[in-house]
Simulated assay, not measured.
Amino acid sequence: MIIYSNNQFLSSDTEIFTAENRGLQYGDGVFETMIFKNNSIQYYQDHFQRLQKAVKCMELTNEVCADPDKLNNLIVELIQQNDLRQHARVKLLIHRAWGGLYAPESEQGILTVFVKDFVPNPVQTKEYVVFSDDIRNHYHKASMFKLLSSGRYVMAGLEMKRRKANDIIITDIDGNVSETLQANLFWIKNNSVFTPGIETGCIDGVMRKQIQLYCNSNGIPFHAGFYNITALEGADVVFAANVAGLTAFAQIEKVKFRTEHALLEALRGQLI
């Protein structure tokens, strides 16, 4: 596999980092995950805009990532070098150049890009989902971005595996639902769409934005805010959504839900 790192195309076997790496030592950086299909990156402008907000928040700079055309061309070239003709998953990381302890000495961001084959997941339902007992989200200046310091998601993932669940819902420190392990959380009730607000500490997802735009364009009520876990109990359908797909939940803890809904199918048909 060919990767891109620090202005070079390299074999994935190449040693590109040393122990003096702020991404390794401090999780100091951001990342972005995108899907390439039909000869383009889905929702590229939205991914690029979120990336710009993330690097600004973290006070990072990178010349390639400041230019949407330059970054897009680099990603497409990398996909071509890896001979990925149909679908690809793109992961872009920016970590800070070395220097300093918790207080960094540099704003220079080092860009690394990985691509691999992406096979759309045919599974549109997760059978058993739990609420996390171990992890809580909280809102802060950078909580809506994808940060390299993702320890809370790793802990939630370990809990999910330990409890033999197919996904896990993280709540905020006040007990409001926030997000799932890898996606934003949604539910439909009376043909209205609900989702936790960014103020719960969840990621400001690209697919979350597309769902909101779809609802606004089609006269479908869309609500974002603070919702206790009991708000899910009366839902017609509950689902998780990210750029890889929309997945319905068949059961959350002891409560069972429908997994089919006309509005959910419309969203899948238009957005995925």
Results as ranks from 00 to 15, higher is better:
I2M: 15
I2Y: 14
I3Q: 10
S5R: 07
S5D: 10
N7M: 08
L10Q: 09
S11K: 11
D13V: 04
T14C: 14
T14N: 12
T18P: 13
G23F: 04
G23C: 06
L24N: 15
Y26I: 11
G29V: 14
G29R: 10
T33G: 13
T33K: 13
M34R: 08
M34Q: 14
M34T: 09
K37H: 10
I41S: 06
Q42R: 03
Q42E: 01
Y43H: 08
Q45N: 15
D46I: 08
D46E: 13
H47W: 05
F48Y: 14
Q52H: 08
V55L: 09
V55K: 06
V55A: 01
K56I: 15
K56W: 12
C57N: 14
E59Q: 03
T61H: 03
N62Y: 15
N62W: 14
N62P: 08
E63K: 01
D69I: 01
K70R: 12
N73S: 13
V76M: 03
L78I: 09
Q81L: 10
D83V: 10
D83R: 06
H87V: 13
K91A: 05
L92M: 14
H95R: 02
H95P: 00
G99K: 14
G100N: 11
L101H: 08
P104I: 02
S106Q: 03
I110L: 13
K116T: 15
N121D: 13
V123R: 11
T125H: 05
V129A: 00
V130H: 05
S132N: 07
N137K: 13
Y139S: 00
Y139I: 00
Y139T: 00
Y139E: 00
H140R: 09
H140K: 09
K141D: 06
S149L: 11
S149M: 08
S149F: 11
S150K: 03
Y153K: 04
M155I: 09
G157V: 01
M160Y: 00
K161T: 06
K164G: 11
A165I: 06
D167R: 09
D167S: 02
I169E: 08
G175P: 07
T180L: 03
L181I: 04
N190W: 10
F194C: 11
T195D: 05
G197A: 13
T200M: 10
T200F: 14
C202D: 04
I203S: 00
I203H: 04
G205S: 09
V206P: 07
M207H: 05
L213N: 06
L213R: 06
G219V: 04
P221D: 12
F226N: 01
I229H: 09
E233I: 14
A241C: 12
A244M: 11
G245F: 15
G245V: 15
A248S: 13
Q251R: 12
E253Q: 06
V255P: 00
E260N: 13
H261W: 15
H261C: 07
H261N: 13
L263P: 03
L263V: 01
R268I: 08
G269H: 15
G269N: 15
Q270I: 10
